[in-house]
Simulated scan of single mutants.
Amino acid sequence: MELLKAYLDYAVFGILGLMGFIALWITIERQLFFKKVQWQDFPHHEHLNLALTHNLTTLSTVGANAPYVGLLGTVLGILITFYDLGQGQSLDTAAIMLGLAIALKATAAGIAVAIPSIMAYNGLMRNVDVINAKFRAQIEQK
């Protein structure tokens, strides 16, 4: 239990930090790709769509799962708080509230990673739709 207590914050925030970095990297990479993509060069609509949506599933997965990682950190933090209280002989309300408040920061961090990730995913999917529409319009004009 002491090992969990010592490294819980590092593990949870490390995982969330990695997830946030991946989401940011994918967002920047896709934006740069969308700016330089030549949709006229694709022979078929599905080839274009595959190129446009590359890595977007990963971005969506980060956004969908970051709150769960944060929630896991919160649950384990609460477990540690109750374990520590069970080991002591007195019931201190301040210690309980402090332990719970500290445990909740993991959920807040998970949500803080998830919201921008989902917003980026939705914005990038809008770009995919726009580029696909331009491609279809080009095909129909021929």
Rank of each mutant, 00 (worst) to 15 (best):
L72V: 12
Y121T: 03
V128I: 12
I118K: 02
L79K: 05
T57Y: 00
Q138A: 13
L91Q: 11
L52Q: 02
A95C: 00
Y68S: 01
A94V: 07
E46I: 12
G123D: 09
T61K: 05
I22E: 10
G99V: 07
Q89D: 14
L50K: 14
Q40K: 13
I115L: 12
K142N: 11
Y83A: 14
I115R: 04
V12W: 06
I78L: 08
V12H: 00
A137Q: 11
E2N: 15
I80A: 02
K36M: 05
G20K: 01
A95V: 10
I102R: 15
Y7D: 14
T93M: 13
I78E: 02
L24T: 10
L91T: 08
G77I: 11
L8I: 12
Q89N: 15
Q141N: 09
R136E: 08
L124Y: 09
A6C: 06
Q87G: 15
N127I: 04
A109W: 02
G17C: 08
L50W: 02
L85Q: 13
T53H: 01
T53N: 11
R126I: 04
K5L: 13
G123W: 02
K36R: 14
A109E: 04
N49E: 15
L98P: 00
L71N: 07
A137H: 07
Y121L: 11
R126P: 00
E2F: 12
Q87I: 12
F21G: 10
E46P: 00
A120Q: 00
A120H: 08
L124P: 11
F82H: 01
N55R: 15
T74I: 10
V75H: 09
V62C: 05
S90T: 14
M19G: 04
G86Y: 01
I15C: 03
F82N: 10
W39D: 03
N55L: 08
A101W: 02
S117R: 05
I115S: 01
Q38C: 10
A23N: 01
Q31A: 12
L24E: 01
V12A: 11
L59F: 08
Y7W: 10
A114G: 03
P43C: 00
E46V: 10
P43M: 04
D129Q: 14
Y121D: 07
I111G: 07
M19Q: 09
R126W: 08
G110K: 05
V75Y: 08
T58F: 06
L56Y: 05
T107I: 01
F135C: 03
A106T: 12
L32Q: 13
L18W: 10
L50V: 06
I96W: 07
W25D: 13
R136C: 01
E140N: 09
D92T: 02
L48Y: 05
G17M: 05
Y68R: 03
L104V: 14
A120Y: 09
W25T: 14
A103C: 05
R136N: 12
P67S: 10
A64T: 14
A101L: 07
A106E: 05
Y10A: 14
E46R: 15
M125W: 01
G73M: 11
V128M: 06
N127Y: 09
T58Y: 12
F82Q: 09
L52K: 03
I102T: 14
W25F: 15
A137K: 08
I26C: 09
L3P: 00
T107C: 03
D129T: 09
F135T: 03
L3T: 14
L59G: 06
L52D: 05
V62R: 04
G86K: 09
G77V: 11
